[in-house]
Design a protein around this nucleic acid. Structure first.
Length: 354
DNA sequence: AAGTCGGGGGG
DNA sequence: CCCCCAGACTT
């Protein structure tokens, strides 16, 4: 294959067609870093407003390193995969301490930073520093699966490593940044998961997959497993204009996020059964028979079926259980500083409307 | 190698 | 409903 012609056609297309994105305004390694973390498993359109606000709030490594975790999580609220925010925060602190505030330009060093894996390392090194390192994300895996007419399972690490080697051989000497971004841009806008726009593809004549008519069968990817269902109840308790919240543990699902005091069950419970459980666990006797609202919230591998009960002011909260020592009674201005997962955020926002 | 970790948009 | 998204980390 004529590598130089492949590079030329791809680069020319990218330089004409590339989208105007906020993280393409400069090559500040810290800015590229923030954008790449936000873009992990996240669509470009979703990340844009978060990126702009985040950089405005934390313009430099110093600013983010000095911030409190609460502020960082608040800036990340709604984006999902919250460990990304905590790793980024931790990583920036390490860069300030170990590297004097300068993001490492060396693959081995940058890979030691929490939250930076093989893809993100390659993206920062190539985009911010112009280094010839591959940045293989889901787009590039799909593009190369089709280019090579490969039926290897792209969800396997082995396949990813093979493609990383392949990409590394193809990176032109003085255009690593544009080349890597071009491959991703191609996957995002032309070589799409469904119904690829092959007629618009700048490297159509290199594509073995299309040559064989396999573009719609590729890439091959193992199917995901089904999701478990978790049944859950949350209580809205108000006392003197304050509402009780709890902070989730520092690891696992929605780590360090806030939520309503909640109980879980592996199997579905009737309203009456929920109320009995609430009485057992919290020592609270509900006067209402119907929940205030119900919410289905879907995560990648599990689903919450969430029932919200409201405890009005007349309800005596004197003899509530010892679990209540974990409850934090917050007024409205305090609540606005906490970060909530979407499932609870939509409930909290309704509290001030009525 | 397989699970875990959010949320949203498109077909 | 299903899939996938500029993936990383843990076990």
């Amino acid at each position: 294959m004529d590598i130089e012609r492949f590079q030329e056609q791809l680069l020319r297309w990218f330089r004409q067609q590339k989208r105007d994105l906020p993280w393409r305004k400069d090559q500040d390694p810290y800015h590229i870093w923030v954008s790449e973390i936000m873009l992990q498993q996240t669509r470009v359109e979703t990340a844009i407003p978060y990126y702009e606000k985040f950089i405005e709030q934390f313009p430099t490594v110093e600013d983010l390193a000095q911030a409190k975790e609460e502020e960082v999580l608040k800036a990340w609220e709604g984006l999902g995969y919250y460990s990304r925010a905590r790793n980024l925060h931790q990583g920036v602190k390490e860069v300030r301490e170990k590297y004097g505030g300068k993001v490492p330009d060396d693959k081995e060093e940058i890979l030691k930073i929490p939250g930076i894996g093989s893809y993100t390392a390659g993206a920062i090194l190539s985009i911010a520093y112009g280094k010839k390192e591959p940045a293989v994300d889901g787009n590039v895996l799909r593009v190369f699966s089709r280019l090579l007419n490969s039926f290897e399972d792209i969800s396997k690490m082995k396949t990813k490593k093979i493609i990383e080697e392949k990409v590394k051989e193809l990176i032109p000497d003085h255009a690593a940044s544009d080349f890597n971004q071009a491959l991703m841009e191609l996957g995002a806008t032309v070589c799409t998961p469904k119904s690829p726009l092959c007629l618009l593809c700048p490297v159509m004549d290199f594509c073995e997959g299309r040559k064989e008519g396999n573009q719609d069968q590729l890439p091959v990817k193992a199917k995901k497993k089904g999701q478990k269902i978790v049944y859950r109840v949350g209580l809205i308790m108000q006392k003197e204009g304050k509402v009780a919240f709890v902070k989730r543990p520092s690891d696992g699902l929605l780590a360090n996020m806030w939520e309503l005091p909640s109980l879980e069950s592996e199997n579905p419970l009737s309203n009456q059964e929920w109320q009995e459980k609430i009485k057992e666990e919290f020592g609270i006797e509900l006067t209402l028979n119907q929940p205030w609202m119900t919410i289905d919230h879907i995560f990648s591998h599990l689903k919450w079926k969430l029932v919200i009960y409201r405890v009005d002011d007349s309800q005596p909260l004197a003899n509530i259980s010892k679990q209540s020592k974990n409850w934090n009674w917050m007024n409205q201005s305090e609540i606005e500083k906490l970060s909530f997962p979407k499932a609870y955020k939509q409930v909290i926002d309704l509290l001030w409307i009525e």
